[in-house]
Amino acid sequence: MLESVGLDESTERVYRVVLTRSPVSLPELGELLPDLTPAAARKAVETLLQAQLVEQLAGRPVRYGAVDPRLGLAALIRSRRDDLDRTASALEVYAAEFHERMLRTDMHRLIEVIEGPAAITARLSELMAGAEREVLAFDAPPYVTVDGTASESELDLLRRGIGVRALYASEVLEIPDRAERLRALVGLGEQARVAPRVPLKMVLIDGRDAVIPLTASAEGTRTTAALVRRSRLCDALGELFEAHWAQAVPVFSRTVAAGDAHPDLSPAERALLHLLNAGLKDEAIVRQLSVSERTLRRRITDLTARLGATSRFQAGAQAVRRGWL
């Protein structure tokens, strides 16, 4: 049980005897643990003294007593934790040096080509299972990953408290099952935004590993992807994401910060203008706002008139120019 703090089995057995029979001498330890040699018992006691888990008591013969485990073991655990923190810091340094050397000497090891939907799904699941901080994604049709596995990986990220930010092409909301899945993910904590288009499909894990398709959308279903490991390219992909994220519109989020509200707009009107500005079609907006098509058309007509716009798309642009969004 105490191997994780550096105590072997024999030392732990001696420690438990001292805890329950304190005070105890070395000869008494030999009687209580007959299979332990005197030398082994003495070594175990020295280890426990050094770890400050037991103390030598005054008087003769020499006896040993246990220190309160909440003090002794807690100090040992803190020491081990500090050691692990230092090791983790060293790991980051060594990993950076390793990847820098790979970049200079073996470019092929920085990029892994993944063939086929099942392999792409499995590799993505493996990478997301190892995520520690945040996963960023550009998302757009067509889809090739195995839906059940991909969804479970995303759910696992959110359950573990990993930050997930995804930027979707507006056409995703026109696919009913995808739109409903997106709504569910947002309900579980994903931050989602939408834009008329995204520059590429991508998943970026902790800023260090990126999975991107190798074929253009015009070529049909993607069956090949590239895993790009830590490099300046991953840094550039992260910056590309942040630039597009800043211009995109939140989806399936009804909350509006006090500083973002406009006195001439209700929250529902503001949400509608965001979606119009993102270029969504009526079917997608109806699902997003949970309103009827008739109500949607009435609201669009009212907003375009108030903005002096001649079309729904112009209404979104006018709202931005007026500072309504």
Score class of each variant (00 low, 15 high):
R254Q: 11
L265F: 02
G238L: 04
L237A: 01
Y143S: 03
Y143V: 00
A96W: 07
W245R: 11
R70V: 14
E12W: 12
Y168H: 14
S10A: 15
A261D: 01
L155V: 10
L49G: 03
T310Y: 11
H99C: 04
E174N: 12
I205L: 05
E3Q: 14
W324I: 03
L91A: 12
W324T: 03
H244M: 08
D35V: 00
E55S: 06
P199A: 12
I162L: 05
D35R: 07
P61F: 11
A268Q: 12
L155W: 07
S217A: 15
S170I: 01
E171C: 09
G238S: 04
T223C: 11
V198Q: 08
M107Y: 15
E9A: 15
H262I: 03
V256R: 11
L91I: 03
F138R: 01
L273Y: 05
A74W: 06
T47H: 05
K201F: 04
Q56P: 08
D209G: 00
V62Y: 00
V249E: 12
A122W: 02
L84K: 00
E134F: 02
L227V: 13
A271S: 14
V194H: 06
E28S: 09
P142H: 09
D235G: 04
G238D: 02
A119C: 06
Q56V: 13
A66D: 02
A284P: 13
M107I: 08
V62I: 11
V5E: 08
H244V: 15
P23Y: 10
S10M: 14
D302F: 06
V198P: 05
P250C: 03
E154R: 08
D83T: 10
V5S: 12
G259Q: 12
G72T: 12
P141C: 04
R78A: 14
P69S: 07
T11M: 05
P141S: 03
V14Y: 13
R159I: 01
P34W: 04
R86C: 05
R322E: 13
R78H: 14
V62G: 14
L124D: 00
A257H: 11
P267G: 07
T105N: 07
D85S: 08
R181V: 00
V24Y: 06
E269K: 02
P196K: 02
I300L: 05
V291G: 12
L71H: 15
R230M: 11
E115P: 02
D282P: 10
G279L: 10
V320H: 14
L29G: 08
A119N: 13
R101W: 07
G259F: 15
D68G: 02
K43I: 13
L240F: 03
N277L: 13
L157R: 01
A225F: 15
L48D: 03
A257G: 14
L237D: 02
V203P: 00
L204A: 03
V113S: 03
R109M: 10
P267L: 04
G72R: 01
T145K: 02
V198S: 08
R197T: 13
E171W: 00
V186P: 01
E219I: 09
V172E: 05
R222N: 15
Q288N: 14
V17T: 15
T301L: 14
G163R: 12
H262N: 06
D282C: 02
A261F: 06
T301N: 15
R160M: 02
A150V: 00
